[in-house]
Amino acid sequence: MTETLDKDVRKSAAARALPMVDLTNLNADCSHADIDVLCERAHTPHGRVGAICIWPRFVAHAHKVLTARARGKVIPIATVVNFPGGTDLQEMTVLETATCIRDGADEIDLVIPYGAFKAGDEEAASKLVRAIAQQCAGKALLKVIIETGELGSDELIRKASHMAIEAGANFIKTSTGKVPINATPHAAEIMIQAIADSGKPVGFKPAGGVKTVEDTATYLAIADRIMGPDWAAPKTFRFGASGVLDDLLAALDGDEAATSGGY
């Protein structure tokens, strides 16, 4: 996205971004052993990530592992519902959400029915977000994925952002990471501006394709410009990523860039 930053700037940018990472494993072949590794990686020599983000079937296991591993505050567990296609029945998504919260999820990343939304059925998306917001109220943070790459147009991204905010989202999130076009700075600009226009305490999460310190710095610069330099923090800003952690840690160690593949 941007030119490589010099070593000192990379280190500073990485220190800022690390506690905002939702360290993710949403691979189809994810196993309990992979979750054990993820939970361990979430506790880095430079501090903890913002959350882990995993499939619903692993929430109870991760909760047990993280609780046993915790020294003080347990790292939050985020999980995904109506994921990735946004096509599950509302009743199924409500039940899945309730089950995830019961199993120990602290954050719910909900995919809207973006295909229906794009076709003009905004009410279906709004009803779903409201229903899940009701399930989450007082129990879990709700992050609403609008799938910007599939919506396509600036107007639809703007509309979906405002819809999610009005329906009760605590965060709005760009993408599932499972489509050809995921997070982009352009989509981030539209979504963060929607948050600013709403005047509500809603956070933002770019997800998919965030792989380097420079990527994180690009998104945080957009947030700083629109919302002010003190706005972006773990309670208002997260990165959905599996591949960025290695580069953040390399920068904090003063090493050369060390990127890996992934979400």
Rank of each mutant, 00 (worst) to 15 (best):
residue 129 V to D: 07
residue 157 I to V: 15
residue 46 H to V: 02
residue 92 M to Q: 01
residue 215 D to S: 12
residue 258 A to W: 05
residue 253 D to M: 00
residue 241 A to G: 03
residue 238 R to F: 09
residue 204 F to I: 06
residue 215 D to I: 11
residue 179 V to Q: 13
residue 87 T to R: 04
residue 254 G to N: 05
residue 78 A to L: 05
residue 156 L to K: 13
residue 243 G to D: 04
residue 126 S to Y: 13
residue 179 V to D: 01
residue 70 A to T: 04
residue 110 L to W: 02
residue 178 K to G: 00
residue 168 G to N: 08
residue 106 D to H: 06
residue 43 H to T: 09
residue 142 L to N: 10
residue 28 A to W: 10
residue 155 E to I: 08
residue 207 A to H: 06
residue 222 I to S: 09
residue 135 Q to Y: 02
residue 259 T to S: 07
residue 99 T to E: 05
residue 131 A to R: 11
residue 104 G to Q: 02
residue 20 M to P: 09
residue 145 I to L: 03
residue 237 F to I: 04
residue 152 G to P: 14
residue 163 M to R: 10
residue 224 D to A: 14
residue 49 V to W: 08
residue 1 M to E: 08
residue 224 D to G: 13
residue 189 E to S: 15
residue 69 R to F: 09
residue 202 V to M: 01
residue 36 D to R: 02
residue 86 G to M: 00
residue 125 A to I: 04
residue 55 W to L: 03
residue 151 L to A: 08
residue 154 D to Q: 04
residue 257 A to S: 14
residue 82 N to G: 08
residue 138 G to P: 00
residue 230 D to K: 11
residue 9 V to D: 04
residue 40 E to G: 00
residue 32 H to M: 08
residue 212 T to F: 09
residue 235 K to H: 07
residue 130 R to G: 12
residue 117 F to R: 00
residue 251 A to H: 14
residue 132 I to H: 00
residue 90 Q to I: 02
residue 256 E to P: 05
residue 126 S to W: 02
residue 85 G to C: 04
residue 149 G to I: 05
residue 237 F to M: 15
residue 176 T to S: 14
residue 106 D to R: 07
residue 123 E to Y: 13
residue 98 A to M: 04
residue 166 E to H: 03
residue 213 V to A: 13
residue 177 G to N: 06
residue 136 C to M: 11
residue 219 Y to V: 09
residue 262 G to N: 11
residue 73 K to N: 12
residue 152 G to L: 12
residue 61 H to W: 12
residue 15 A to F: 08
residue 139 K to Q: 12
residue 62 A to D: 13
residue 108 I to P: 02
residue 189 E to Y: 01
residue 237 F to Y: 14
residue 4 T to Y: 03
residue 7 K to S: 14
residue 196 A to W: 01
residue 85 G to D: 14
residue 245 L to H: 06
residue 80 V to K: 13
residue 158 R to F: 01
residue 94 V to E: 11
residue 69 R to S: 02
residue 12 S to F: 03
residue 143 K to A: 08
residue 157 I to Y: 06
residue 94 V to P: 15
residue 65 V to D: 03
residue 213 V to W: 01
residue 83 F to V: 02
residue 187 A to S: 15
residue 109 D to F: 01
residue 194 A to N: 06
residue 263 Y to S: 07
residue 78 A to K: 00
residue 165 I to N: 11
residue 132 I to G: 03
residue 129 V to E: 02
residue 225 R to Y: 06
residue 55 W to M: 13
residue 85 G to R: 13
residue 240 G to I: 13
residue 206 P to S: 12
residue 205 K to L: 00
residue 87 T to V: 14
residue 12 S to L: 10
residue 14 A to W: 09
residue 40 E to L: 09
residue 250 A to Q: 08
residue 189 E to N: 07
residue 189 E to A: 07
residue 36 D to G: 07
residue 93 T to A: 06
residue 115 G to T: 10
residue 128 L to K: 02
residue 71 R to L: 05
residue 46 H to G: 04
residue 2 T to H: 10
residue 255 D to H: 15
residue 80 V to F: 12
residue 162 H to Y: 11
residue 109 D to K: 12
residue 147 E to M: 12
residue 147 E to P: 11
residue 20 M to A: 02
residue 222 I to E: 04
residue 79 T to G: 08
residue 193 Q to E: 12
residue 37 V to K: 11
residue 207 A to R: 01
residue 219 Y to A: 14
residue 130 R to E: 14
residue 144 V to I: 07
